[in-house]
Amino acid sequence: MNELEFVTKHRRHLHQHPELSLHEFETTTYIAKFLDEYGIEYERPLETGLIAYLPGNGTHTIAFRADIDALPIFEENEVPYKSKTDNVMHACGHDGHTTALMLFVKRCKAMADQGTLPQNVVFIFQPAEETGGGANRLIRAGAFDKYPIESVFGVHVNPFENEGKVVIRDEEITASATEYRFYLHGLSSHVADKEQGHSCGEALQHVLTQVGQIQQYHLNGLKRNIVHMGHFEAGEAINTVPSHGYLEGTIRTYDEKDLEIVKNQMNKISESVALLFNVECRVEFAEGYPPTYNDPSLRKHVVRGLESSDLEIIDKPTPFLFGEDFSFYQRMAPSYFVFVGTRDEEKGFVTGLHTATLNFNEHMLIRIADYYEQILSTYDEVHG
């Protein structure tokens, strides 16, 4: 089996059998079976996901990460390897990330068997990137405590750039992602006696208006921030004053100070509801993903690895505004994350991430493995 056959086989199997965050049981079993076939030791610090390790000849320990979970999306691609699970799809390319890392594992094992693996390598098959913060869960579980990891590298497919192009950026490359939720509780009454109630409908209108003005009036207009209202509702019946209200949304920013401004303003909005409408209101923030920070000290490894793999580098002037839980690895070691172009207009592989028609050519996964291998093989040389 050549490498194109290898990546095609594994990627399409994973694509047909997607699993949601923290439920990647079959996916984990599939990867474990692959590792067993090659005699590679691995650990399962969490219920899903795997950490594998191969000792090399050098003194450096480098980690490479792939995410393994899928999304609750019904696939619309009419392909032989279409998802077999209704309303679950690898719509973010994690099947590709996983397969590329599997190919890299295979190459590293061949080098280890020949006594030529240049450095120690940790392979991270991480669960729950989409939701659940799998990277943070692994770190908190002590999954990497026994490995003296110096650096962590990862990739993401990018359908907005053509094949052969890779987007990089030092420092922040993706935004923080923080969820917020407003809970309102008032007093119901019949519409005929509406003045006796405390309307969450009226209060929610106030919250929506004020949240919608945060970006315009409280954040620097030259910075890219998103304060998004994703879902809201109020009321119970057509002829009663609403006694309950709810709003949820997400905040995206790459400046921690901006995030604090948004959260502080939301707290003030929550406090104002009781004063204005006699309605109880609280706002809660779910722990989000911090901005993904690419350590500038690793740029030389990335540039050398991409150029040696005949991949064109595109320096992005501003970060992407979506979240990515690769960001947690920077708490463990310097890290660097890049976006590998997979756009192919002739084949119609042009739709974005998290869409029902995302697709790409498997041969690009070989290029990702090439990039990983170049980082590994030149790490000592570039590091020095």
Rank of each mutant, 00 (worst) to 15 (best):
F339E: 02
L358F: 12
E171V: 08
A177K: 05
A192N: 09
Q215G: 12
P72V: 11
E248H: 08
R331N: 15
R44H: 10
A177E: 08
A175E: 01
V227N: 01
S270Q: 09
C281Y: 02
T253H: 02
G212Q: 04
V152L: 05
F74G: 15
N57T: 13
G49E: 08
I226C: 01
V166I: 13
L50T: 03
E163K: 14
G186K: 02
E19M: 01
N162L: 11
V350D: 02
V122K: 08
M332P: 03
N2I: 09
L184V: 05
Q330K: 15
V121G: 00
T98G: 03
A286E: 12
I62A: 03
V338P: 00
A66C: 12
F328Q: 09
A237P: 09
L365R: 02
L208T: 07
H13C: 05
V302R: 04
C108G: 03
F6E: 09
A63W: 00
M1R: 14
K223R: 14
Q215R: 15
I68D: 01
T318R: 13
H17S: 04
S270T: 05
Y147H: 13
H218Y: 15
E346Q: 15
I238C: 14
D380H: 07
E37Y: 06
H231M: 11
E284M: 08
N359F: 04
G49I: 01
G249H: 07
S377M: 13
F339K: 06
R343E: 13
V121T: 09
K33L: 10
H354W: 06
E236Q: 15
A128T: 02
S327N: 07
D310C: 10
N87G: 10
I226Q: 03
G115D: 09
R224K: 15
S308W: 11
G221Q: 09
D193K: 13
R137E: 13
E26R: 13
N77E: 09
F182D: 01
H15Q: 12
P334R: 07
G96A: 06
T99D: 03
G384T: 13
H97Y: 05
N361C: 14
A91Y: 00
P290S: 08
C108E: 02
H198R: 15
Y289F: 11
L35D: 07
H10R: 05
N361W: 03
L358M: 11
F320E: 08
Q210V: 03
T131K: 15
A91I: 00
R169D: 00
D344M: 04
H244I: 14
V105E: 05
R107M: 12
Q215E: 12
V350C: 09
T250R: 12
P159H: 08
K223W: 06
G348R: 11
L208N: 10
D315I: 12
H97C: 02
L306Y: 03
K165H: 12
L275A: 14
V303F: 01
G305F: 00
Q126E: 12
G235C: 06
